[in-house]
Design a binder for these strands. Structure first.
Lengths: 127, 127
DNA sequence: TAAACCTTGACACGACCGTGGTAAGGTTGT
DNA sequence: ACAACCTTACCACGGTCGTGTCAAGGTTTA
């Protein structure tokens, strides 16, 4: 059993051959090659291309998005860094260095005292 | 204790005020507002803006990338779908419908039989 | 050997990203 | 009251994404 050429694969998956190459370059769906360098699309790749298409459509994400998700998957350090940042939702003002605190405190404390006349005083909690 | 205005925050974080608004619109760093609608940057937001800057620089990711990571975090269904797709690296050709298998088999079997003369026969395993 | 494929590389082009600027109008501080 | 802020809403502009097409050259097949 063997595989389809790129244009045949394009036909049965709904992608254009141009996009098939583009998708490969982005690392999302790679194929084995024949001896002479032709891409060979087997059932596995065809399936993957179809589900990829469904994924993009259903969630309205872009190829670049999925490419980035792939990068996250392959680079645990990056993934950890980003997740840490995301989960550290604005909080604990105590963790801020005293120096920079002073810089604005100093400049603002007069008018801020005055501002406290207002009832509404928004704090650090966001969304 | 209160917060910095947008231009002050821009100065101490290295972002431009324009970008601060852009970052807010992308959902990455939101701030509370004063009664009259002014953005108020407290130590928490300042910290977040600085670490965001470091994150982008260190890993060479874009704001859109982090924005997408945020979306992944907030939409577990999307996250699951993408992770499933990513981890389902090309495999199990058996899962492909018989019908489409036939469509090319039929058209190709003659020349494929002939192609089997070649030693190299790439299979579904990728990367 | 000629037609019909395949390959990579380039040009093109509309849409959006990252960024700056400006305009029109409200708020704050002196 | 006036300067110096802030707000949102636009225009602009180079860069990249997604996509097509074309050129120059190798492969397969009839």
């Amino acid at each position: 059993m063997e595989a389809l050429t790129i244009h045949e694969a394009a036909e049965t998956t709904g992608w254009s051959s141009r996009m098939l190459r583009y998708i490969e370059r982005s690392g999302l769906v790679e194929t084995p090659r024949s001896e002479s360098g032709y891409r060979l699309y087997g059932p596995a790749q065809l399936q993957r291309l179809r589900t990829l298409r469904e994924l993009l459509q259903k969630f309205e994400v872009s190829l670049t998005d999925v490419g980035f998700a792939l990068r996250l998957e392959r680079d645990p350090e990056l993934r950890a860094a980003i997740e840490d940042w995301l989960r550290a939702e604005a909080h604990r003002p105590e963790h801020v260095a005293q120096s920079e605190w002073m810089s604005w405190e100093q400049r603002k404390h007069e008018r801020l005292l005055q501002a406290s006349t207002q009832s509404n005083t928004p704090v650090a909690e966001v969304r």
